[in-house]
């Protein structure tokens, strides 16, 4: 499957990805609605956009007490089925990277679904910091697999609890 790869060294913090994501979902530009979020590290003068990496065995999928989080067999994306989500927010608390958000209008949780296989954030990224690439090739600029990267960053196993 392909995922959104982030290269923090190229990000210029324009937040276009956030606008693109919000617009795609709501037809409006309120970046609070975005699923991708740009994180700022002022002292390091760094910024890292971050969105769901569609973990191999996502802890959100496992923990959802409604069985509402499933993998899309076509895109490989971990998706929330709004018709089955009860809005209990357990997944918000379970996700170690804060990639699940609450839809205050629909009262269900929501997250990146890779826009069905053509992510808007990547399309509108101004600096090339976001790329839509095969999972195995992602993060090759650091020559480590995504799982290892996650493990190092969060001290987690693939499952992510």
């Amino acid at each position: 499957m392909r995922i959104v790869e982030v290269d923090p060294t190229s990000c210029v913090a324009c937040r276009n990805c956030e606008y693109a994501c919000a617009f795609k979902q709501t037809g409006d530009f309120d970046i609070k609605d975005s699923n991708i979020r740009v994180n700022f590290y002022p002292e390091e003068r760094a910024c890292i956009p971050w969105t769901c990496v569609h973990c191999g065995e996502g802890w959100c999928m496992e923990v959802c007490p409604a069985g509402a989080i499933l993998r899309n067999p076509e895109t490989g994306a971990v998706e929330i089925d709004a018709n089955h989500c009860a809005g209990c927010k357990m997944c918000l608390l379970a996700c170690p990277s804060g990639s699940i958000h609450f839809d205050k209008v629909e009262l269900v949780s929501k997250k990146c679904d890779l826009c069905g296989g053509d992510p808007a954030c990547v399309k509108f990224c101004t600096s090339g910091a976001l790329q839509f690439v095969e999972e195995e090739e992602a993060y090759s600029f650091r020559r480590e697999s995504l799982d290892n990267k996650l493990k190092r960053l969060f001290g987690l196993n693939k499952r992510g609890s």
């Binding site: 927010k89 804060g98 699940i100 609450f102």
Partner: peptide, 18 residues
């Protein structure tokens, strides 16, 4: 609910004692 997201992000810190 936004604060719940922040708490979720804190879990790895607690787990890994960072």
């Amino acid at each position: 609910a936004d604060d719940t997201v922040i708490l979720g992000r804190l879990r790895p810190w607690i787990r890994n004692q960072r």
